[in-house]
Structure formats: C-alpha cells, structure tokens
C-alpha cells in the first residue's frame, strides 16, 4: 500500500506491506536508524517517536495507520548543529551508558514536557483537580515506559529535570 508519512518535515511516500510497523518504516524504508528496536512489543520504549506531537511506541503501530501523519524522530530534534534542549540535557547530565535506549528516552522526554505543559495528570499526581508540578516522582512515573538496561536512571532523571527547567 502506498503510504505517505511526513517524517521530520519531509513527506516520505513508500509502497509498504501492511504488516510493516511504523518502526520498520522509519528504520528500514526511510533509513532513519536513530529510532531503536528493543523488545518490539511496546514494553521497553526504545522505539518512542512523536506522532502529531504525541509520544507513542512505533513498534506497536502499523505504517499504514499513519498515512498523512507527521512523525518526529530523534533525527528531527536538532536545529542544524544546535542540539535540542532535551538532547543537550542528556549530554550535560551524562544520562546514558550504551546509548541504545537514548533516542527513545529523549523523544519520550520531549513528549513528557508537552504533556506536563498541557496539565495532563499521572498516576502519582496527588490532586487530580490541581496543576501538575514536575517532581522527581512525577518524572519517574512518566518515564516508566522507557527502560534503560544500563540503569542510568539517576542521570536520566537529572536530564529530564534539567530539560524541564530549560523549558519552563
């Protein structure tokens, strides 16, 4: 099926087998290998991308479901040589070891900041009716869909905190 997805601002029209996941579309058909395949079952978050501004697991979605959608991957975050503030925060806090989960962690953080700005609650939000304050507990809960096998969690937490400060 001819499927056109706008990836990082560029329309990509590709003839795909309907079984092609959005993740495989990005990696194998468009050649953007930044988005990583970890578990391929929505459990690890390595494939996190933003679709129409919202973070999802690219492995649990079919490319054909996204005809006409706008997808932002880790490759689309930087402005030329200038890193995105979330990328810079991960560098500044040394928030990775092997780096395999990092593109997913970074895209997830970009999504998280937008969700917090929109006032969306999480499971640990004490007052559902009140505004959301991005405490460490909130960051941990909201990042629980991204696993880091090297366990760089303290640094990832610090990076998200730093990025949130930069975004505020």
């Amino acid at each position: 099926m001819l499927t056109t997805i706008r990836v990082n601002g560029v329309d990509r029209a590709v003839e795909v087998d309907p079984r092609t996941s959005l993740l495989d579309f990005l990696r194998e058909r468009v050649g953007l290998k930044g988005t990583k395949k970890g578990c391929d079952h929505g459990q690890c978050g390595a494939c996190t991308v933003l679709v129409n501004g919202v973070r999802i697991n690219a492995c649990l979605s079919l490319a054909v479901m996204h005809d006409g959608d706008e997808v932002l991957t880790v490759e689309g975050l930087a402005d030329g040589e200038a890193l995105h503030p979330v990328q810079q925060a991960f560098l500044s806090e040394d928030a990775f070891q092997c780096g395999y989960c990092t593109p997913g962690q970074i895209c997830s953080t970009v999504g998280l900041l937008a969700e917090v700005a929109a006032g969306q609650p999480s499971e640990v939000t004490a007052d559902l009716a009140g505004p959301v304050t991005l405490s460490d507990a909130e960051i941990r809960e909201r990042m629980s869909g991204n696993i880091c096998r090297c366990s760089a969690y303290p640094q990832i937490l610090a990076a998200v905190r730093r990025a949130a400060g930069a975004a505020a």
Partner: peptide
C-alpha cells in the same frame, strides 16, 4: 476512573 486509567500501561501506550 482517571486513577484507574493512569495506573494502566505506560504514557506511550495510553496515548495510543
């Protein structure tokens, strides 16, 4: 209901 939903899956899954 809000609490029950927020207890399920990850944000990425709940967004979809």
């Amino acid at each position: 209901l809000a609490r029950a939903i927020l207890a399920g899956g990850s944000v990425q899954l709940r967004n979809k």
